[in-house]
Write a protein that binds this DNA or RNA. Structure first.
Length: 416
RNA sequence: GUGAGUGUCGCCUAGUGGUCUAAGGCGCCAGGUUGUGGCCCUGGAGAACGAGGGUUCAAAUCCCUCCACUCACCCCA
């Protein structure tokens, strides 16, 4: 094999497309129900955009970005996440002049240099919804509701919605200090990863999977106990809204996120079974990000969802997906004169908005019908020498095997 | 980046040192009366057995290296 798709990437072949079209359709529909409009941004951006937003010290920036210099010498990076580009576009195009909040959604390929694994790829697709320009906790509720309703609408079941608040830049430092304090007494019991986390990113100590570390995390200080009055108020109102919305959330004190820009609300949705790479949705509030990128202080909230992982779960749960419609009719012919008729007829039907697959080459009628059968079309039209002479065609119903000889002009009406 | 498992026609699989210039199923192509599919029958195309190197009289079968895939850690959607 000379060439293969690069590691961690994959071709989405026709037989998979039904899932993908279905996802797109649902994403657009939810967007429309909630008043979110689609935005598409470039696959690559100025490297600094991601370094600044995602955080210089995160794994994504430190070792997972596809970064390159273009021929003009600009340092560019294939987007490793979807939120920063949306914020950049918000600033670049002065979207703060629109009524706030501005509500946007995207479906985009995401690139991260990682070791591929179940539910993890170097190029994958995410969709996400972002509401920029207001700090009302009702917006947090709306966004979380969108994620939840999305899964209801595609019939994915057995999901768990996890919620936490990690505070803002006013109260988080106090919490992190308390956390470090607590962990200082347990350093010797920590796994080696956690020892580096303690220095680098103490919040991440909380979601280590090692049982021994989890025990320590279980009695660690909880972020919600250190919230400032504003964050506290925000969180309790959000919880009330989620109850109003009838969303079955659980507060998970160990839930933190891997990107630096999150503030206050963070949430995830995952299958109840759990398992590796299982998170379907991750999101939260990012009230400081726009300012960090050079705008005025502008609160915002959003989430991203991994499409491959969702499809994986749809398959696991045997969820039926609407098929992509096929052409209705196959046109078979015998002989050159018939072929001329077939070409004309094919074109007429297509112009009349009827999907047609026309035979090609010089195959036996048997071979042509075999092909029609394999393609799964509902009807076959057969044109032979006799039909050319009499100015008719044969219309064969592929399910019932009934066929009749008719003038071609009747075809359009019968196939509509 | 770390660890484990796997690697034979498009897909699934047989084969564990000589009978393998590799077998079967699915799929594909064609034929089975003159212009007709789906079932059945027959035939055909399609792999030098991931790549390279070794051991041996002899390797798909043993050893080494590399590569790829899968899974887990890590990270995250």
């Amino acid at each position: 094999m000379l060439y293969r798709a690069p590691r961690g990437t994959s071709d989405i072949l026709p037989k998979e497309q039904a899932y993908w079209r279905y996802m797109e359709q649902k994403v657009a529909h939810i967007g429309q129900l909630y008043g979110y409009e689609r935005i598409d941004d470039p696959a690559f951006e100025d490297t600094r955009l991601f370094a600044r937003s995602v955080g210089e010290d995160t794994d994504i920036v430190k070792k997972e970005m596809y970064t390159f210099k273009d021929r003009g010498g600009s340092l560019l990076t294939l987007r490793p996440e979807g939120t920063a580009p949306v914020c950049r576009a918000y600033l670049e195009h002065g979207l703060h002049n629109l009524p706030q909040p501005v509500k946007l959604y995207y479906i985009a390929s995401i690139f991260r240099y990682e070791r591929p694994q179940a539910g993890r790829y170097r190029q994958h697709y995410q969709f996400g919804y972002e509401a920029i320009g207001d700090d009302d906790p009702a917006l947090d509720g709306e966004v979380i509701d969108m994620a939840w309703q999305f899964f209801l609408s595609v019939n994915l079941r057995h999901l768990s919605l996890q919620l936490n608040s990690i505070g803002c830049k006013k109260c988080r430092p106090g919490y992190i200090a308390a956390l470090k304090d607590y962990y200082a007494d347990h350093t010797h019991q920590l796994c080696s990863d956690c020892k580096t986390r303690l220095k680098r990113n103490p919040l991440r100590l909380l979601d280590c999977k090692k049982p021994s570390c989890q025990q320590i995390a279980d009695s660690a200080p909880r972020s919600i106990d250190y919230l400032c009055p504003e964050c506290e108020e925000h969180f309790s109102r959000l919880k009330r809204y989620l109850e109003l919305l009838d969303l079955p959330f659980v507060v998970n004190h160990h839930l933190v996120r891997g990107l630096d820009y999150y503030t206050k609300t963070v949430f995830e949705i995952q299958p109840e079974g759990g398992g590796a790479q299982s998170t379907l949705v991750g999101g939260g509030r990012y009230d400081d990000l726009i300012e960090e990128l050079g705008g005025k202080p502008t609160p915002a909230i959003g989430f991203a969802a991994g499409i491959e992982r969702i499809i994986l779960n749809l398959k696991k749960q045997n969820v039926a997906i609407p098929p992509i419609p096929k052409p209705k009719v196959f046109i078979a012919y015998l002989g050159d004169d018939a072929r001329d008729e077939a070409i004309k007829l094919t074109s007429t039907l297509r112009r009349g908005d009827i999907g047609v697959i026309e035979a090609v080459g010089d195959k036996s009628l048997k071979a042509q019908l075999r092909q029609a059968n394999t393609l799964g079309v509902g009807y076959a039209v057969i044109i032979g020498e006799q039909e050319v002479k009499s100015g008719t065609v044969i219309l064969r119903d592929m399910t019932s095997a009934e066929q009749r000889t008719i003038p071609p002009s009747q075809l359009e009406g019968l196939l509509k």
